[in-house]
Each structure stands twice: as C-alpha cells, then as structure tokens.
C-alpha cells in the first residue's frame, strides 16, 4: 500500500515535472522541471527493481546532463532570459500532442500484453548480472557506447573550441 502510494507520488512528480517543463516560459524553470521529472523517473526505476539504473539516472541525468544544461545557459547570457513565447504555437502543439496521447492511451488500454506470471527474482536484477551482460553478450553494445561517448565528447570540444579560435 505504502509502496503504491510512493510510486504514485513519483509518477505524479515525473508527469508534473514533464508538463511543467513543457509549458513554463522561462528556460531555467524548464530545466528545473526536467530535473524533477528525472528524479521521478529514477523513483520509478527503483520501484521496477533496478536500483543501479536509478542510481545511474540520478548520477548521469540529474548530476551531469541537467547541470551541463544550466552551465550552457549561464555561458550564453541571453538564453537565460525569458524568450518570446507564442501562445498559439503552444496551443496548437498541445492539441497535436493530446491527440497523440489520446490515440496512444487508447492503444495501451486496449492491448493485451503477454505478462509474465510473476516478476523475476531479485537475484536476476543485480548489478552483477548487468555487468556480466555488458561484458559478455552485449559487449559490442558496451564498446560501441563507449566509443560513441568519447567521440561525442571530443567532437563537442572540437566544435566549440574551433569556433572559439575564430572569434
């Protein structure tokens, strides 16, 4: 019961943060909303039996990505200030999104998912299994991800710096 309440709270937190982030005019508030959502999502992961992924979520997303965004915001002064906010665009895109949401919700509600009899045991969720999977079956994925990350970071640095040299 308590678990249900807690997870419901996390869900509401995630959804509220998302909607706040989508609609609030100010950019910084938007990032704050994103942070709230990420936090809620981390709780959901926790509930879904994956503390490691939840930890990663908090570490990388909240600790890394959100902070990087805020830094970027601070580096470019005008980004921080409130931008022109077109009401009509928000309304139109909201209509489109709600349409999408309604259709998808109907699909979700009407679909019969092949559920497992009972959730897997805690042993199957451990960090070891993840590490094992990454290093054996999914090692190409792991390596690819690593390369991708390093390339992305190097490229990001190069792009930003080359332009800096010019200016």
């Amino acid at each position: 019961m308590i678990a249900t309440l807690v997870i419901a709270a996390f869900m509401i937190l995630a959804m509220a943060g998302a909607i706040y982030a989508a609609l609030v005019p100010h950019t910084l508030h938007c990032i704050i909303g994103l942070g709230l959502t990420l936090f809620g999502v981390a709780g959901i992961y926790l509930y879904l039996g994956s503390p490691f992924v939840a930890a990663m979520q908090i570490l990388i997303y909240i600790g890394g990505i959100s902070v990087a965004m805020v830094f970027a915001l601070m580096l470019s002064v005008s980004l921080a200030k409130k931008m022109k906010h077109s009401e009509i665009k928000v309304i139109l895109s909201s209509i489109a999104a709600i349409l999408f949401l309604a259709v998808m919700a109907r699909l979700i509600m009407t679909t019969e998912f092949p559920l497992r009899e009972e959730p897997a045991g805690a042993a199957a969720w451990g960090v070891e299994q993840i590490g094992h999977g990454f290093l054996t079956t999914y090692s190409p994925l792991f390596i690819g991800l690593a390369i991708c990350l390093s390339v992305a970071i190097i490229a990001a640095v190069l792009v930003a710096r080359r332009e800096a040299d010019k200016s």
Binding site: A14, M15, A18, I19, A21, A22, L23, T27, C30, I31, G33, L34, T37, L38, V41, Y61, I65, M69, A72, L73, L79, M83, K84, H85, S86, K89, V90, L92, S93, S94, A96, A97, I98, F100, L101, M104, A105, I108
Partner: peptide, 26 residues
Amino acid sequence: LVLFSAGLVAIMSRRNLVTILVGIEL
C-alpha cells in the same frame, strides 16, 4: 506516454534550443 507527449509539446512549441533539448530528454 505523458512524458513523451510533454516532450513533444516542448519540441513543437518552444523557440529556445535549450528547452527543445529538454523535450528530447523527456
């Protein structure tokens, strides 16, 4: 789904690239 739709709204309606990035993250 709600998160995704919120992300869509952000992508579709915002003029600021940073907030669009927020939408993508959502």
